[in-house]
Write a protein that binds this DNA or RNA. Structure first.
Lengths: 195, 195
DNA sequence: CCTTGTCCCGACCGATCGTTCGGTTACTCT
DNA sequence: AGAGTAACCGAACGATCGGTCGGGACAAGG
């Protein structure tokens, strides 16, 4: 609180604007001109805050990845029966995904054209493997079905969870979040069939 | 068979090359230079076969959409109990998605920057609504759980199915296809829990 | 007052974008 | 052989790309 800042951009506030535009137009489809219009400052001014377009992407996907990996450090993800730890991770993934929606959205659309994008893809794979091991342990306990391969099931469950970014739009009262995470947990573990 | 064609490009063969590159680099991330390198002809020669970059996109997503809509016209999708028709549509969606993998992949990544992309998004929404009505009818019959909203369940199921394009790679023997469609049907209707 | 540093700007850079054009090659048909 | 044409090419178009540069406006500290 030593400095009384001017009412201006910081790398963080600029990032939130940039991520929104990236998600609307796609990273490749977004020019620095688009960003400057959306931020209300000139194109060259953006370079006062960040080193360039790719740094904005790196900051965004880092934030998303940090949020996801933090789940694995939570107590309920580390101790207990694997099937219960898996349920906790699934539920928390939905919550993080919704809480950091624009950043995770951008992360999930990265294709691998640049070094930054390939680094993001690698960290995503790491996370996937960690969850796959959890599912494998739950299968070894006989708590989840054994007639679907672990790797395949992991991918399909991730697919369902990650697809949330394609349609979820924030609810000002934050009401829909619990409904979504509950629906995902029910469908993943019990399926559509009448229980 | 009246014409013995020269060994050269047609709009269709050129399309298959273009779609592959689009999926690797993203549509916006792909330049006509990239396409010419991949196709082995000069940039200007591409314009002898198609009107431009956007026509390639339009042809690709049209092929994907035609494949999906054709499912709804099949007999098992039109007659019978809604829950059985739903299972058939789910299974066939996986098959079409795998059979037309690169085209459906491109369709699912369209963002809406151009008129062609917005048209594709609109047709996708139409298809989604058709399937949502099927699930609604199955819920009215009491054949699928009623504690998850129909619209929400539809989106999550579509998310799981559509995510296949993110990791499935064609098996020369076509072996994995049945395993995937079976796994999807099991997870969607019965869930992960040991049955 | 003047200096210092933050924040921002218009003008401009070389490179690349999707597309066009005039012309050449190579095959088909008569 | 000669005409016609589908397939192709190199060069260049105006526009836009991500990024650079020198300098102006403005607040804080002396």
């Amino acid at each position: 609180m030593t400095t009384a800042k001017r009412d201006t951009y910081t790398p963080e506030t600029l990032l939130s604007v940039a991520v929104q535009v990236f998600n609307e137009r796609g990273y490749d489809g977004t020019s620095m001109e688009h960003l400057s219009k959306a931020a209300g400052i000139s194109k060259s001014s953006i370079y006062h805050h960040v080193s360039g377009k790719e740094e904005l992407l790196r900051r965004a996907v880092s934030r998303a990845l940090d949020g996801l990996f933090a789940i694995l450090d939570e107590e309920h993800a580390r101790v207990g029966r694997p099937v219960d730890r898996l349920e906790h991770v699934v539920r928390r993934m939905v919550e993080v995904l919704i809480g950091e929606l624009p950043y995770v959205t951008l992360l999930l659309r990265v294709r691998g054209n640049t070094a930054t994008e390939r680094w993001a893809l690698e960290r995503r794979r790491d996370f996937d493997h960690r969850v796959a091991e959890l599912l494998k342990a739950a299968a070894a306990d006989g708590d989840v079905r054994g007639d679907v391969e672990v790797r395949l099931a992991t991918r399909l469950v991730f697919g369902m969870i990650n697809s949330i970014v394609e349609w979820y739009r924030p609810d000002p009262r934050g009401a829909g979040e619990r409904e979504v995470s509950e629906a995902v947990v029910r469908l993943v573990f019990a399926g559509l069939k009448q229980g």
